[in-house]
C-alpha cells in the first residue's frame, strides 16, 4: 500500500445541514401562510385574540425567511434569522401564557416552537461546521502505472472490443471443457 498519505486542509460542504435548511425553509413558508391567512384561528388557539395584526406580521416574517432559505447559496444567516424569529415567537407566547385567555394553548404552542428551535440550532451548528477545515488527502502520486500516463497511452490499443484479448464464444466453451475434464 502507498503510505504515507499526503495531507492538506480544505473546507467541505455539509450536504445534510443544507438539506435540513431547505426543509426549515418550507416549514417557515407553511407556518407563515397559516399565520397570514388565518390569524384569527391561531390567535384564539393561543388565547391572544387582540393580536391578529401581530400574528399576520409574524407570518410575513416567516415567509420572508422561508423564501430566503430556499433561494440562497449561503443559508447560514437565514437560519440564524429563524433562531431570532423563534425567540420572538417564544417571548410572545410567554406573554400569552401569563396574560392570555388560553394559557394551556399558548404553552402547547410554545413547546412546539421550542422543538423547532432545537432543529434550527442543530442546522446552524451543522452549517457552522463548514467553516472548520478538514483534512483531505493528496493522491497525486497514485497513478497505478509504471511510467507517466502519457507513456502508457495506447499500450492496450486493439481498436475494437472484439480484438481485445478476452474469453468468449468458442474460447469460453473450450476453456470450460478443458478445466473440467
Amino acid at each position: 500500500m502507498h503510505t504515507p498519505r499526503l495531507e492538506y486542509q480544505d473546507y467541505r460542504v455539509n450536504h445534510d445541514a443544507r438539506k435540513l435548511a431547505r426543509s426549515l425553509g418550507w416549514f417557515s413558508i407553511g407556518l407563515g401562510l397559516a399565520e397570514l391567512l388565518m390569524p384569527g384561528k391561531l390567535a384564539r388557539a393561543v388565547g391572544m385574540e387582540d393580536n391578529e395584526g401581530l400574528i399576520r406580521l409574524y407570518g410575513l416574517r416567516e415567509i420572508g425567511t422561508g423564501v430566503g432559505l430556499l433561494m440562497t447559496d449561503n443559508p447560514e444567516p437565514w437560519v440564524y434569522g429563524r433562531v431570532v424569529g423563534d425567540s420572538l415567537d417564544l417571548a410572545t407566547l410567554g406573554v400569552g401564557m401569563q396574560r392570555g385567555d388560553n394559557p394551556v394553548g399558548a404553552a402547547i404552542a410554545a413547546t412546539a416552537v421550542a422543538g423547532v428551535t432545537v432543529l434550527d440550532l442543530a442546522c446552524a451548528r451543522g452549517l457552522g461546521e463548514e467553516h472548520h477545515p478538514v483534512t483531505l488527502y493528496d493522491y497525486s502520486d497514485r497513478s497505478g502505472f509504471p511510467e507517466p500516463p502519457e507513456r502508457m497511452r495506447g499500450r492496450a490499443a486493439y481498436g475494437s472490443i472484439d480484438r481485445l484479448p478476452q474469453v468468449h464464444g468458442a474460447d469460453a466453451a473450450d476453456r470450460e471443457t478443458e478445466t473440467r475434464h
Binding site: 502507498h2 488527502y137 469460453a172
Partner: peptide
C-alpha cells in the same frame, strides 16, 4: 472474460491495482 489477460498485465507490471487502496 478478462481475468486471464488482466492477470498477465498485472504480472507484466503494466498496471498495479494497489493504488486505489486507502
Amino acid at each position: 472474460r478478462w481475468t486471464d489477460d488482466l492477470l498477465n498485465r498485472i504480472q507484466d507490471g503494466q498496471i498495479d491495482p494497489t493504488f486505489v487502496i486507502t
